[in-house]
Nucleic acid binder design. Sequence first.
DNA 1: TATGTTGTACTCATATTGAGTTTTACTCAT
DNA 2: ATGAGTAAAACTCAATATGAGTACAACATA
Lengths: 261, 261
Amino acid sequence: MTDEEEFLAGYDPSRYPAVAVTVDVVALTIRDGVPHVLLVERGRPPFQGLWALPGGFVKVGAEDLDTAAARELAEETGLETPGRVHLEQLATYGDPGRDPRMPVVSVAYLAFGPTMADPQAGSDASDAAWVPVPSLGLTASGAQPPGATRRLAFDHARILSDGLERARGKLEYTPLATAFLPEVFTIPELRAVYECVWGEALHAGNFHRKVLSVPGFVEGTGQTTASGGRRGGPRARLYRSGDARLLHPALLRPGTEDGVR
Amino acid sequence: MTDEEEFLAGYDPSRYPAVAVTVDVVALTIRDGVPHVLLVERGRPPFQGLWALPGGFVKVGAEDLDTAAARELAEETGLETPGRVHLEQLATYGDPGRDPRMPVVSVAYLAFGPTMADPQAGSDASDAAWVPVPSLGLTASGAQPPGATRRLAFDHARILSDGLERARGKLEYTPLATAFLPEVFTIPELRAVYECVWGEALHAGNFHRKVLSVPGFVEGTGQTTASGGRRGGPRARLYRSGDARLLHPALLRPGTEDGVR
DNA sequence: TATGTTGTACTCATATTGAGTTTTACTCAT
DNA sequence: ATGAGTAAAACTCAATATGAGTACAACATA
């Protein structure tokens, strides 16, 4: 028997204190030019009646974290990840007391997807819905004002806030904005994603030039939209996402000049 | 008794399967123009005799993750964090079987610090040392070739690889390069940090111009070095870190043009 | 004192950006 | 049908940023 086998044999996992590991998913999409986040209404304590990010316990040792996040997203809301949904790890939260039941470490995930159907309420949730982010009235620091119509459970206001900030940054140097759109899209639609996530208007001409000049960002399909825009204008050309994983040079957002100091 | 209190009273944490939560720290510094990572030699199974990132179990519910990371760094190596060491969360790893003893979720942290004394071996470690990163022969994918002199335990080669990539990116858009230097430093010293982390030579004149033109990156002290460089040259002006948290515009590294596609 | 090295300040051609303007193709309301 | 308004895409042009090289004075070393 080697040292290592000897050690394993004498090892008793039950001596360790009970800790739970969960995943929580910040799933974002865009509806009518407004960012929406997927929330579930809690059907049981703690925080019964408040809204929370979809998530649940990880079967540590039986599944990896990415799989757990995809599973929870599907289970609690009836949404399938395999499609065009982008899923990436966001951060991990483990402050004492963040769950009143027991010590919990929560691995947060960030998901982007195109506009999807309304979700189905799952096991633990009495309701599930795409909620407009502005309606939650988040402050920059990730806090939620007392008067908000929908209050978020646990530290989910902070997690959502971190997710939004990550999304804003990701649009700068990755082509992930296309994950919010269907497989085929126009440049103005892509611009609308940026304007919606960054919350500021962009110069249409410069944006157009920039997107087409970044190698691998989008590739043309040779097609155009069937008709012009709602209120006029010519038909727009259709593009699909290119093969670039990183944008070089990046699309830096205008406002941040000397913002964060 | 409210619903919530009722629920808490009937809650039995022992029904949950045993899971351990650990922190692992990728602590980086620069010695003689070469990036070094802090490693400990494992004094007990599993992976006895191999080298690992400093880390250990988190007292979930009693300390937050950042505190646990700082504590482990200090405990296992005798290094104090409060000083000029930058510590940030990197990512969380929870693949099944990554620890042969039991299901373990590991929250990795990334630390940058100026050149420091050799560490003291701590409790679980038979030795601790600053190890030159190139000597580990990591591949881009985070794997380690079979013939390496120092083999890394667990999935620590991948964690280290992720940490290095994060460090390379952080230098582009944050002033964190200064965390590798003493409180007061020269522009050429700062350039040496970039060259060492990015692994490529930079144009001295352009780097100088760029650093001074980014608002809040560095601020002058009015002082210069006491003498010129080792091999000649005038005295260099001394600077300290400015108040910017983000670099605008960013210092993009040259090589990445159309690299990742 | 001669020689080589280096920090800092230049120059200059070329890209990249921000902010407009123009042209053209469409929708919608008369 | 026709005109008014709108928007996609192409253009212009000045301001700015970048890459590459030169210049020079201050220093160490032999």
